[in-house]
């Protein structure tokens, strides 16, 4: 196809020039848009690594000036920040483990064709993709269960994801041959043993992927922290960061007027942003392709 294209164009120089111009335009535009996606972060990173004075005199663009780690030291030195970080890590780890457990528990039985009531149970789960109680009924449930201001309110309600269950189910069906499980079953192995000894080892990649889905989702979300948590020390990192950004926005002029502040709020804010972004950016290169696959599996189901 390519050869024919070039052959044709070699006869028409005008077409060739237009094609080249189109190529340049496309390569340039896409590259520019891609740069627009990272440069903002480069700027924030540069700011966070620069000295107060340089940031205040607005000399920092994409490269740090007077490189130093003072801002990070004060972020890490802030006990409330560390508590939020610890809370977020704790919640994320438990959430991911529980989410994965529930996903496997739901997905595996639903791949067994001999299971009675398979379709009804499946619909029971999938309905949750389309319907929900909404903010207030969710909140009142937390209230009734006495989970307000408890870490459990950030773990239990979102722990089961029908979307991830569908991905898991599809993936078990395609990676584990039916015959393998059936023969183990006929040999007298229990279903749980088959799951643990045969299915799960074969599904390691998808389990890793879904763990990342759960972990990244939990790390980024802060809506439930705003709704259910009112005690400052229990705020998730994102919630805390949001508060920090919001408060300094409204009192920006006031804090700028005080020359005695130890560090420029802009620098501290930059450091906090990078601090919360870092874990995602570190895992990003590894997770990207799995997420792309997830989109595709999710799309197929519809």
């Amino acid at each position: 196809m390519h050869n024919i294209n070039e052959f044709r164009h070699s006869n028409y120089t005008k077409g060739k020039i237009i094609d080249l111009a189109a190529d340049i335009f496309i390569y340039f535009t896409v590259g520019l848009l891609a740069l627009l996606c990272v440069l903002p972060f480069v700027h924030v990173l540069a700011k966070s690594l620069s000295s107060d004075a340089k940031v205040t005199s607005q000399l920092v663009y994409l490269i740090p000036k007077d490189f130093n780690l003072k801002a990070y030291r004060s972020v890490i030195g802030d006990p409330s920040m560390i508590r939020s970080l610890w809370q977020t890590i704790k919640v994320t780890v438990i959430f991911t483990a529980l989410g994965m457990f529930l996903t496997v528990c739901a997905a595996y039985p639903l791949t067994r064709k001999r299971l009675k009531g398979r379709n009804i149970i499946s619909v029971f789960f999938i309905i949750t993709l389309y319907f929900s109680g909404g903010i207030i009924p969710d909140y009142l449930l937390m209230h009734r269960l006495g989970l307000l201001n408890k870490s459990a309110s950030l773990i239990l309600p979102l722990a089961f994801s029908a979307y991830n269950m569908i991905i898991m189910r599809t993936s078990i069906q395609s990676t584990v041959p039916d015959s393998l499980e059936e023969s183990a079953f006929l040999d007298g192995a229990g279903d749980i043993r088959i799951l643990v000894q045969i299915v799960l080892p074969l599904c390691k990649p998808i389990i890793a992927t879904l763990c990342l889905f759960y972990a990244v989702g939990r790390w980024n979300a802060y809506q439930d922290s705003v709704f259910y948590i009112t005690r400052q020390p229990m705020y998730l990192l994102q919630h805390k960061l949001n508060l920090l950004i919001q408060t300094t926005n409204t009192t920006l002029t006031a804090s700028e007027a005080q020359p005695d502040t130890v560090t420029n709020p802009e620098v501290i804010k930059s450091a906090c942003i990078i601090f919360a972004t870092l874990p995602i950016v570190i895992v990003y290169p590894f997770i990207q392709k799995y997420f792309v696959k997830g989109v595709m599996i999710g799309a197929v189901k519809g």
């Binding site: 109680g133 909404g134 009924p137 009142l140 279903d191």
Partner: peptide
């Protein structure tokens, strides 16, 4: 015959019932 499969399903069903279906029922308010 399939009690182990049903046992596995109990966990997600309970969680979904409590945290997804109860709020849906809560819409009556």
């Amino acid at each position: 015959r399939d009690w182990q499969l049903y046992l596995l399903l109990v966990f997600p069903i309970v969680i979904v019932l409590v945290f997804k279906y109860f709020p849906m029922a809560g819409l009556i308010i």
